[in-house]
């Protein structure tokens, strides 16, 4: 009897990490200004202490393009992909539904609504700060309202959470439409932001996302075993020693925070949070202690590749949110249909 049949996680993590590094290096070289692969590597490595001399032979234009334009965008894309993927895994575990994601709870819609307000009404502070701030307030505010809607005397049921999330998201998207309607000539700013884009990201965005995603990842890993039990139901989890109310609250708030930061730097990017954990579960099994690290890396690779395709491969830059929805949507339909068929099987 093999008690732990899926002990290949270490190898998977190593391969994914190598793949991620190669993707970062390759995509840095791609684009309007071509940078040879070896030069990219030298510029990347010259950032390390003690290696400053490595970048000397590379032309200044290429150094600026790589360090100030491409790397911030590439790293933001990878970090957002990683953040959305682990949040998706956590929401799926909490809601006991392998098809849930940040959107199901209305968190993304709330964050987008907050960001739209920040874009539309100048608050006297630069957009760089006001958009993430209002996105976070919108996201967590929505979450608190959704929890309030779905809470009944004994606790929170996952079905109620999903229903409330969908209702609130519908109201919020009408609200966003209203904002677009009153926005007049500024409407294009909101529309482009909502469709999602990593264009002109800065090192400040990288830092913000890195902080949120790594803090969130640490919290999720700490509760990963509890999350396994929660995914079997709160009564079961409680009988196996999990303080279900507290754990649920901590995980929901952390996941909403990470989602809000991701939405605020990139706009709405759908299906990453849903598809990445779902596909990775096929590799690692449902144990979140293995799933979370693998989903983190896979999400980073997926969104980075998607962003590089729209940036450097396609003749026109398609908004990344549109691209992920166009590819991810049909794929989601396929998975959903397969599940329906499997269910009706017995």
């Amino acid at each position: 009897m093999s008690m732990f049949p899926r002990n290949a996680t270490g190898i998977q993590l190593f391969l994914l990490a190598v793949a991620l590094f190669l993707c970062v290096a390759a995509s840095t070289g791609m684009g309007y200004v071509r940078v040879p692969f070896l030069d990219t590597l030298r510029i990347l490595l010259s950032a390390l202490p003690g290696m400053e001399g490595l970048g000397d032979g590379v032309r200044e234009l290429q150094q600026v393009v790589v360090a100030e334009v491409r790397l911030p965008r590439i790293l933001t894309a990878a970090l957002v992909g990683a953040g959305l993927a682990i949040c998706g895994a956590v929401f799926q575990g909490i809601l006991r539904n392998p098809l849930a994601d940040p959107y199901t709870l209305g968190v993304s819609a709330g964050a987008a609504f907050g960001a739209s307000i920040a874009l539309l009404f100048p608050l006297g502070i630069p957009n760089v700060y006001s958009v993430p701030l209002l996105a976070f307030l919108g996201g967590t505010g929505t979450l608190i309202f959704v929890i309030y809607l779905s809470a009944s005397g004994g606790g929170i049921s996952s079905n109620n959470l999903i229903l409330s999330g969908i209702i609130v998201a519908a109201i919020l998207s009408a609200g966003i439409s209203f904002l677009k309607y009153v926005a007049d000539e500024q409407v294009s700013v909101i529309i482009f932001w909502l469709m999602g884009s990593f264009a002109s990201r800065t090192w400040a965005d990288v830092l913000l996302t890195l902080t949120a995603v790594s803090a969130g990842f640490a919290v999720f890993l700490f509760f990963a075993r509890d999350l396994n039990l929660m995914s079997l139901g709160s009564r079961t989890a409680a009988s196996l020693g999990v303080d279900t109310g507290r754990t649920l609250l901590i995980l929901l708030i952390t996941a909403s925070l990470v989602t809000a930061v991701c939405v605020s730097v990139s706009g709405i990017i759908g299906f990453v949070g849903l598809l990445v954990p779902h596909m990775m579960r096929g590799l690692t099994g449902p144990d979140n202690r293995r799933l979370l690290p693998v989903a983190l890396l896979a999400g980073a690779i997926l969104l980075l590749v998607a962003d590089t395709i729209t940036r450097a491969v396609l003749p026109v830059e398609v908004p990344i949110g549109v691209l992920t929805a166009l590819i991810g949507g049909p794929f989601f339909c396929y998975i959903f249909r397969k599940r329906q068929m499997a269910r009706s099987g017995f």
Binding site: P5, R96, L232, R235, T236, L240, R281
Partner: peptide
């Protein structure tokens, strides 16, 4: 506690589920 029968959505293996009883 052995709860009333319910559906489990996530494909944990049987031995993984039994091992959860040792988590405490």
């Amino acid at each position: 506690l052995v709860p009333q029968n319910y559906h489990i959505n996530f494909p944990f293996s049987v031995s993984e589920v039994v091992m959860m009883g040792r988590y405490p």
